[in-house]
Simulated scan of single mutants.
Amino acid sequence: MSEKLRRWSNANDWTMYGILASIFLVWRIGVVGNWSLECWVLLFICLMGVRKDQIDVDWKRFFVVGIPLLGVFYYFYGSGSGVWWKIANWMFENNRHVWQWDDMMRSIPLNDAAWARAINHPVADQIMAWIYNYGFVLSLWICIVRSYWTKSVKKMMSYALSGHLMQFPLILPFYNLILLREVWWVKGQPDLLARKFATENDMLVNVMNCFPSMHTSISFAMLLLALREKDRIFKYMMVTYCSAIIFSTMYLQIHWVLDVIAGMLFAYGVVKLSDLIVYLASKLVPSRFKGFYNKKDQAYAPEKTVAA
C-alpha cells in the first residue's frame, strides 16, 4: 500500500498544484478586498523582480508551510474587518477618553495640513481618494504576497506582524484614551472621501480615532521593510506608494500632521518589536523542522537568517 502511495505521489506534479493553489488564494484575497484593476497592476509591477529576493528553497517544501500560512492570513483578512468595527463601536459606547485633543490640535500652526492642499484638482482628489481607500490593506497585502513568492516564511511573518497583527492591539490603548477627530470634521469642512454614513453614530465612530494615524503606521512599516529587499523596482514602488498613502491622509484633510508623525514613530517601534519576535521565534523552531528546507538560505536582513 505504501509503495502504491509513493508511486502515486511521484506521478503528480505537486509544484504545479501548489502554484495553482497559490494563485487561487491571491485571487481570493483580491476579490474579498474588492481590488480594482489598478490594484492588480500595482501588485504585478511589485512582483516583476521577485526572483532577486527568492531564497534557495524547493517549491514543494515551501508550499507545505507557505500555503496554509497564506490561507490563515486570508481567513483573518476576511473576518478581521468585522472584529475591528465591533471593537470600535464598543469603544464608542464605553467612552473612556481621558484626553480630548480636537481644540488643541486645531490651535497648532500648520498642524491641520492645509498646506497639503495648496495645489489641488478634482482629478487629484480622485487619485488620492483611491490611494487612501485601498492603502490601509493593499500596502500590506502587496508585501505579504510578494514575500510569499520569495519563498520565505520568515518574511511573511515579519510583514504580517509589523502590519495589522501587532498594530491593532498596540494602537487600541491610544484610541481608547485619546479622542481626536478627523481634520475635516473639526474644521467643519466637507468630507473629501464623500463617505455615506447610515447613522450619526456610524459617522462619529469613523472620525474619532486619529492619533496616531494607522494609515500612516501600516504604510510606513511596509516601507521600512521593503527597503530591506534587493529588488529596486519593488523598493521604489513601495516607497512611492506608501509615501503617497501618508500624503493622502493630509491632502484629504483626514489626519493632522502630528498624527502622521506619531504614526511613523509607532510603525518604527512595531517593526523593531516584530524583528525581535521573529528572531526569538526562529531560535525556538526545532532543528528537524529547519532541516526540512534542505537548501541553504540567503540573507534577509544584515544578519544571516534561515528560511523557516
Rank of each mutant, 00 (worst) to 15 (best):
H164Q: 11
L227Q: 08
A114R: 13
S22Q: 08
W35M: 05
A11N: 15
A267Q: 03
N206E: 14
T216H: 03
G135D: 07
I119Q: 01
R51Y: 00
L192Q: 13
K154D: 08
L42W: 03
P302F: 12
D125T: 10
W35K: 00
F220T: 04
F292P: 02
L192C: 10
A88S: 15
L284W: 08
L276R: 12
I245P: 04
T240D: 07
F76S: 07
Y236L: 14
S282R: 03
K235F: 12
F62E: 05
L204T: 10
E229I: 03
I87D: 05
D191P: 04
P212L: 05
K304Y: 04
L179T: 01
K154H: 14
Y300P: 01
Y74N: 13
L43A: 03
L252V: 11
S217D: 01
N89P: 02
N206V: 01
T305W: 00
L179R: 08
L5Y: 12
H97F: 05
L224K: 02
N95W: 11
N89M: 04
K151Y: 12
F136M: 12
L258H: 07
H121M: 00
S287L: 13
I19W: 06
L284Y: 02
S22G: 11
G18C: 14
M203S: 09
Y175M: 05
I67C: 07
Y132A: 14
P286M: 09
N34S: 14
S274H: 04
K155H: 07
L180H: 00
T305P: 02
C39R: 03
C242V: 06
K52L: 15
M203Y: 05
F174W: 07
W184G: 02
Y175Q: 08
L258P: 02
V207L: 08
V306K: 12
V41W: 01
F76L: 14
M104K: 09
I19H: 10
N95M: 10
G82R: 12
T249Y: 01
D58L: 03
L258I: 15
G18Y: 15
M16N: 14
F76Y: 15
L47K: 01
W90C: 04
S282L: 00
G78L: 04
L37Y: 00
G188P: 11
D13N: 14
A194Q: 13
C242N: 13
W40A: 08
S139L: 00
F62M: 11
T216K: 04
A88Y: 11
L140W: 09
V186I: 14
M1C: 13
E182V: 04
Y241F: 14
Y74I: 14
I233W: 05
